[in-house]
Simulated assay, not measured.
Amino acid sequence: MSSPLAQPTPPALVAVAHGSRDPRALRTVSALLDRVRALRPDVPVHLGHIELNAPLLPETLAALGDREAVLVPLLLSRGHHVKRDIPATAAASCARTRPAPPLGPHPLLVDALQDRLTEAGWGGTPRRTSAVVLAAAGSRDPDARADTARTAHLLAARLGVPVVPAYASAATPTVETAVRTLLARGRRHIALASCFTAPGRFATECARKAPWIAAAPLGTHPAMARLLLHRYDQALRGAPATPHLASA
């Protein structure tokens, strides 16, 4: 009696992180990917960084050879890295790659943001005096700002209070400006939601400017692991993998 055919290995999930000089960032991203592996043990999960940390994305793709891979940005909006850096690196590799969208905006991202706020002490204050500043890294790309604004809108609908997006760099308003705007509107209890995947310089600087409570970065929240896999599956349902040849 013939043995059953072995099931083919699914395409690799390559999580693409930005990279940070803060050692907590790599530890956090690694722990998040461990959660992903626990949810889907059949999926090979790899990590590649855009800069600052090893392994860099070109090294990760080189190790995969000509295997099929889905590149899932651990980024929360569109921008230069999603539109330019990641596709350029993929095009220079031998891997057969599929791009996935960034993690935001999405209701699972809002789940994580809301829970982090609750952990920090959100709740118990009147809605008419409460508000949230959604702190993000920032980008000159208008699509990135539109994505962050959409995430703020979804969080506001969930919480029932105003949520103003603010940025650590490259875009306005800053956290300080957003706080002043909300104070002028009579919002005395202003929390900061950290729209960052992991601890780092920008997340730390933004948290220091919170006038009341500051939520932790999204990190290893269970919704983040589910969101990574959702983007992976979404990419697999889309266009077929594109073969690339490394330039001579």
Rank of each mutant, 00 (worst) to 15 (best):
D85S: 12
L33Y: 09
V43S: 02
V175C: 01
M224Y: 12
A184Y: 13
L218K: 00
A112P: 11
L245M: 05
A131I: 04
A149I: 05
D147M: 08
G48H: 03
S247V: 13
A198K: 01
L117R: 12
R226N: 08
V161W: 06
G160L: 03
A241P: 10
R231T: 13
T89M: 11
D22G: 09
A62Y: 05
G121A: 08
P11W: 01
P8A: 03
G79C: 10
S2P: 15
T118M: 11
D111I: 04
S3F: 06
R78P: 01
A146K: 01
G48I: 13
P173H: 10
L154A: 07
T174R: 00
A100G: 01
I190P: 11
A100D: 04
L218D: 02
H18W: 02
V43Y: 06
A112C: 14
E119K: 10
S77L: 04
D233Y: 13
L113R: 00
A91N: 03
H46S: 07
V179Q: 00
V161E: 00
A156Y: 11
A225S: 08
T204E: 15
A91P: 00
P99E: 14
I190E: 12
A31M: 08
V70M: 11
A88Y: 03
G121F: 05
A223M: 08
P211D: 07
A88I: 09
L56I: 14
V163W: 11
S169G: 12
L76C: 04
A88M: 10
D34C: 02
L103W: 06
A214E: 03
T177S: 05
P41R: 05
C206Y: 00
A157Q: 14
T151L: 06
A63N: 05
H80D: 03
E176A: 10
R96A: 12
P173M: 04
C206G: 02
V132S: 10
H230A: 15
A54L: 11
P211S: 09
V82Y: 00
P8L: 11
A131E: 06
D143Q: 10
V161D: 00
V82K: 00
R158P: 14
S93E: 07
Q114H: 15
A241C: 07
E119D: 14
T125E: 15
L228Q: 03
A157V: 03
A210W: 05
N53W: 08
H221A: 09
L76I: 13
R226A: 15
A90H: 08
M224K: 00
A90C: 02
A100E: 03
T174N: 02
H153S: 10
T172H: 14
A178Q: 11
T129H: 11
A6P: 14
R150M: 02
H189W: 05
A15V: 08
R21H: 12
R188C: 03
